[in-house]
């Protein structure tokens, strides 16, 4: 059996240089993967190249529109997102910016679908995220997004809650968005010394009032749990205090 080449990269910037290298040298990769996600097996060849000479390759070449689209699609957890980006950029070399309208290309559709998924998930969390009030008027929220969207979500709450200080935790990725006074920081687990947050005295009562409202506002004669779940799939329920857990 022929060995299959998987190209390895460490971050988004390196991915773009790697793709530039592959395109320039006319190499068709079997797959491209992030270093920490790779699981080697007998039939795959892992190749990690030094591609820093290609760092400038896309400068001035990529329009902001295409770059943003790629950056957003990259936030998804799709197994083949790097290959999708590779093929879109390969076609970009040929067709230029119009590649993002050429929906007869599989890679274009996939890229647009991934970006849309990322945007729609971000929008949903703007509504479904739940903060708890901690002591000293500090607010804390945990969530588990499917896509890597903390950086897209946090600015929304920064404009909305200007006087409040808060922390949002992406539980699975162990990432934090921390808003203090006028500044927003993105932190890793090791940056957070030790979290000792205690709920404020009012928190329990307020949660109880919200549950009361939530149950009262439903019209019993119109009960339609399927419709409820279509709009608000179960994966969002974990941190929504009004939803009963199974």
């Amino acid at each position: 059996m022929k060995n299959e080449n998987i190209y390895i990269y460490e971050n988004f910037k390196e991915l773009l240089s790697l793709i530039a290298y592959l395109i320039t040298n006319q190499i068709k990769p079997y797959n491209i993967q992030k270093k920490e996600k790779v699981t080697p097996n007998l039939f795959t060849n892992l190749i990690h190249l030094d591609t820093h000479t290609y760092q400038q390759f896309w400068n001035k070449k990529l329009s902001l529109k295409v770059l943003t689209l790629i950056r957003d699609a990259y936030r998804s957890e799709d197994k083949y997102k790097e290959l999708v980006i590779y093929y879109v950029l390969l076609n970009y070399q040929k067709y230029g910016e119009k590649v993002i309208y050429m929906r007869n290309l599989k890679c274009t559709n996939k890229l647009l679908a991934l970006a849309k998924y990322v945007h729609s998930e971000t929008h949903k969390w703007k509504g479904f995220l739940r903060f708890q009030e901690m002591e000293n008027h500090f607010y804390y929220a945990e969530f588990e997004p499917i896509n890597d969207i903390l950086e897209l979500l946090a600015p929304h709450f920064k404009t909305r809650f200007q006087r409040e200080n808060w922390l949002i935790k992406d539980v699975k990725r162990k990432k934090y968005a921390f808003k203090n006074e006028n500044q927003l920081f993105f932190l890793q687990e090791e940056d957070i010394l030790k979290l000792e947050l205690k709920q404020s005295l009012k928190e329990e009562e307020c949660e109880d009032l919200w549950k009361t409202f939530f149950h009262t506002i439903a019209i019993k004669e119109r009960t339609n749990k399927k419709c409820q779940q279509n709009f608000m799939p179960k994966r969002y329920w974990k941190y929504m205090i009004e939803m009963e857990k199974e």
Binding site: H123, K126, G127, F128, F214, H215, I217, A218, I219, K220, R222, T223, N224, K225, K226, C227, Q228, N230, F231, M232, M240, E242
Partner: peptide
């Protein structure tokens, strides 16, 4: 665009 914060058991947006 508006934001839905929850959905009650009748499927209506809150």
């Amino acid at each position: 665009n508006g934001i839905c914060h929850s959905f009650s058991s009748d499927g209506r947006c809150i």
